[in-house]
Nucleic acid binder design. Structure first.
Lengths: 214, 214
DNA sequence: ATGTTCACTAAACATCGTTCATAAACTGAA
DNA sequence: TTCAGTTTATGAACGATGTTTAGTGAACAT
């Protein structure tokens, strides 16, 4: 197989750790495919192992837990969400950027519902993914905050509004929309585009008729 | 096949169906206590059975599935949520009623997080609970819609706003707030009161400074 | 009294996550 | 090459899960 490997490669990828990393990656890839194809509840150690060409026990040489695999999947999904949001975040005009961010968020939830559920709806994941050392969650949230910061700098916001609270409210709307779409799709018939348009319209311009007298 | 077969004592508690109903109720009560005390994932057939004084197999004489037990629990929770909202819905002033509804919704999520998760965050439950014959979900949603209907009748809404979309947006905000509080409590440090106040303020009055020119 | 239905249990099955003893394969030096 | 030590992988097993099945009394209707 590799008899010429007698010379120890000092700076190159040593086969020992190299193949270990490959195995990890293959396991994760197969796990992701299972979640995407058959849903999160189908993510079984034995299924992952069979798909990756291992026995179930072998997975524990590469991951501590089934939960560790799921967590890694969730973190990768979080990075994917951040990428999608970052792409939309390039829009120059703040209001259009806000809409683009919302659409990208909704699109991610629609494209990878099981990943979204894993990140934000499974108990114990979002807490660590957002609060831990992983900065993807914070970076994604900062993208939203940036919009309102820009609006504030441009003087387009009402007085006395807290930027972080605004960003939080917007995120709440996005998450509420996507997660309800996942669990109550039968009840939530409207498209994400329409829902987002209505929510943004109300959030920005208010639902009440402007009142002359206090 | 069984109409003339037996004329059970209509007014006396016929032991036959009476005790069956008691068993059902006892099973459900114990199941609810387990969910409340130890969380939804601790809801195990053997645990329920032991708590109710049965063997695990006996539960299948009263319920089709573990899922059937959970579904019944979720439907009862939905009725409890409806009751809480109905109480808040007595507020006369529409705007104060909106706030009261939001606070009641948030309070329910805080008081019974596992029930809320069961109803709205577990796959496959909300869809049937809201869309099925169970009218609790629709009634709860109608309470929200009524607020905006009243606001519209009073002429306090901006022109061109769809009432159902408004109600949906408000529900989305409530659900986003409660569910994020459940999964990302470490990240969502603000209290529900503050979150709701901010969201309502923005939703009603808009975040943008009123613009004189189109 | 008798035959039928009902409520229930013990045991078993398949599957789950996880652990353990063990064996094969690779690694680095003598 | 040879040989110890480490790494990598496996099969069997353990406890727990949801669910099914065969069997056992007790209650019921006639």
């Amino acid at each position: 197989m590799s008899e010429v490997k007698s010379s120890p490669p000092p700076a190159g990828g040593s086969t020992r750790a190299r193949r270990k990393e490959d195995a990890r990656a293959r396991i994760l890839a197969e796990a992701r495919r299972i979640v995407l194809d058959q849903g999160f509840e189908a993510l079984t150690m034995r299924r992952i192992a069979e798909a990756a060409g291992y026995s179930a026990a072998a997975l524990y040489l590469h991951f501590e837990n089934r939960e560790a695999i799921a967590r890694e999947l969730g973190e990768a999904g979080m990075r994917a969400l951040l990428d999608a949001l970052a792409e939309a975040g390039k829009t120059v005009d703040p209001l259009q950027r806000l809409k683009a961010l919302g659409l990208a968020y909704a699109a991610f939830g629609r494209a990878e519902p099981e990943t979204y559920r894993l990140i934000f709806m499974e108990p114990g994941f979002a807490a660590t993914a957002l609060g831990g050392k992983d900065a993807a969650g914070a970076a994604a949230f900062a993208l939203i905050g940036g919009v309102f910061q820009d609006l504030a700098t441009a003087g387009r916001l009402r007085d006395g509004l807290d930027i972080e609270s605004l960003a939080l409210t917007f995120w709440i709307v996005l998450h509420g929309m996507v997660s309800l779409k996942l669990t109550c799709s039968a009840f939530l018939v409207a498209s994400e585009e329409d829902l987002l348009a209505t929510a943004l319209d109300n959030l920005l311009h208010g639902a009440l008729r402007p009142n002359r007298e206090p």
